[in-house]
Nucleic acid binder design. Sequence first.
DNA 1: CATTACCTGCAA
DNA 2: TTGCAGGTAATG
Length: 275
Amino acid sequence: MPELPEVETIARGLDVQVSGERIAAIVKLDWERMVETPDLPTFRRVLPGRHITRVGRRAKWLLCSLDAGWTLAFHLRMSGRLLVMASDTPPDTHTHLVLSLHNGQSLHFHDQRKFGRVRLLDPPGLAALDTAYGPEPLATTFRADDLAGVLAAHRTRLKPLLLNQRVLAGLGNIYVDESLWHARLHPLQSACTLTHDDATRLHTAIRAVLERAIVSGGSTLRDYRDGYGAFGRNQEHFAVYQRTGKPCPRCGTPIERLVVAQRGTHICPTCQQAG
DNA sequence: CATTACCTGCAA
DNA sequence: TTGCAGGTAATG
């Protein structure tokens, strides 16, 4: 589910709600496979008593910085949610990890499909996570020339390339489709065949699409909620995603659905010609 | 590059 | 009942 804008929205909300608070206890952990690292005894021993200093994001990872150099990292995969609840709120069946805080609230990790993962990282672990991902598309240091360089270096088709987190961090199925429509590029076009003008348009499109999605609180198709439990509103801005058969907002041609890299893919066949 | 696996629930 | 879903890692 959550792509960059959704994780960013959750991180901002959690930063307001839990920064400066202290973890009291692990109140519930009923799906131990979600703890990827470290081993479970260490995970259970280290967390209680830790201060949360800030909440941020890298790629699609939500990062809770703790004291003593630790970082609690969550990946929400398809259906994960992170919610701040009053501590007397009983966790439901899909809530697999609950951390109680000393302020009377709790952090609930809710995940219907159980694909989500948690890591407790030391500084080298955090550094390794960071280097595993490509540049942040919204960083001011990420320029159109940088994207042009990435595209020129790959013969892959555009869509799978943009979904590759090692190439560019944070895009998923929704925002790749939306960005390609805005840039008028076809998902099957080979990346290295783009002109510099194509790359510039794609750079602009990716950033505009992501920024608007953050302003709109992310996109809720079904599962996504922010850290307060609120729905996103960005789905109202979709041009192509899940709009098969509906008119292209630019030219009126019915949106088509195809499958690219095993993912449902939405295009306007008039605006997005395979170049 | 494609397929499978990980899970659950919902709509067709 | 089947297929599909916002993600990703592990296989041929």
